[in-house]
Design a protein around this nucleic acid. Structure first.
Length: 255
DNA sequence: TGGGTGACGACGC
DNA sequence: AGCGTCGCCACCC
């Protein structure tokens, strides 16, 4: 019969190569803390370890959250008595401040960490396709794998995985539901009506006579396509024919 | 270890 | 527009 502590050890360290973490869990002294914090989705639980913010979930049922945490991380989590620097930073970031929050991606694989790091580069008001992340990571055909990695994001909102959408600008999946994802993006300024008017007709890029072309989800460019000097494009070749170069911010095609 | 799974994308109706 | 199909890849058992 397998020692249950050994099973926990394996589960919790499956994706981790960190010796200090494995030691902490196996010796049974690892206890993380959690509290609730205000966010764009209302109250959420935030949990953290000494290494950083480890989880964000919708607040509600303490017991359910603690059970989920134990199941995923093989680690107890208990209510915090007070904030520390990590939870304070997370609180500020969830409030919209531009602060750095240490993140504890203890059970994420190297690939998943790279996906989350790239997603963290997408600023509010913009979005990027799953395929864009795959391409940026150097594995352009790993689009499904990118979706799977985002689906395991332990810290939604903090790592803004909701800003990764499908190539056709439909929202795609989300841990808190597609409707919630769409509302979050709309709140950040993403205009889905404008995007739909573009993609419905098969356009994939927005060009500007100033000399560049973008993904429709680059900032608010989708809301300006009817202005003079802007044009809709179906292919990168079409953009090139007009003498347009890829936007350096959204990088619409491979370099 | 190889086959199953899934926040995808392209394509064909 | 919205399906089904197929290829793709990281990860799991």
């Amino acid at each position: 019969m397998t020692d249950p502590r050994l099973r926990d050890y394996r589960d919790a360290t499956r994706r981790s190569t960190s010796p200090d973490f494995t030691t902490k869990i196996f010796s049974g002294i690892g206890v993380d803390r959690y509290t609730s914090a205000a966010s764009a989705l209302g109250d959420v639980y935030i949990a953290w370890s000494a290494r950083g913010l480890s989880a964000v979930r919708l607040a509600g049922d303490d017991n359910a959250f603690e059970a989920w945490y134990a199941e995923r991380f093989a680690c107890r989590v208990v209510p915090a008595v007070e904030d520390d620097s990590i939870s304070s930073a997370a609180r500020a970031k969830l409030h919209g401040e531009d602060v750095e929050v240490p993140i504890d991606l203890r059970d994420c694989s190297p690939f998943e960490r790279r996906v989350l790091a790239k997603a963290a580069e997408i600023s509010a008001g913009s979005a990027r396709p799953y395929a864009w992340l795959a391409r940026e990571l150097g594995t352009p055909t790993a689009t499904r794998a990118v979706g799977n990695a985002l689906g395991r994001n332990p810290v939604p909102l903090l790592v803004p995985c909701h800003r990764v959408i499908r190539t056709n600008c439909s929202v795609g999946g989300y841990v808190f539901g597609a409707a919630t994802k769409r509302e979050l993006l709309a709140q950040e300024g993403v205009d889905f009506d404008a995007l739909e008017r573009i993609t419905r007709r098969g356009f994939r890029y927005v060009g500007c006579d100033a000399g560049w072309f973008c993904l429709p989800t680059c900032g608010d460019v989708a809301t300006r396509v009817d202005a003079p000097g802007y044009r809709l494009l179906r292919t990168a070749a079409e953009a090139h024919a007009h003498g347009l170069v890829p936007c350096r911010l959204c990088r619409p095609i491979a370099a």
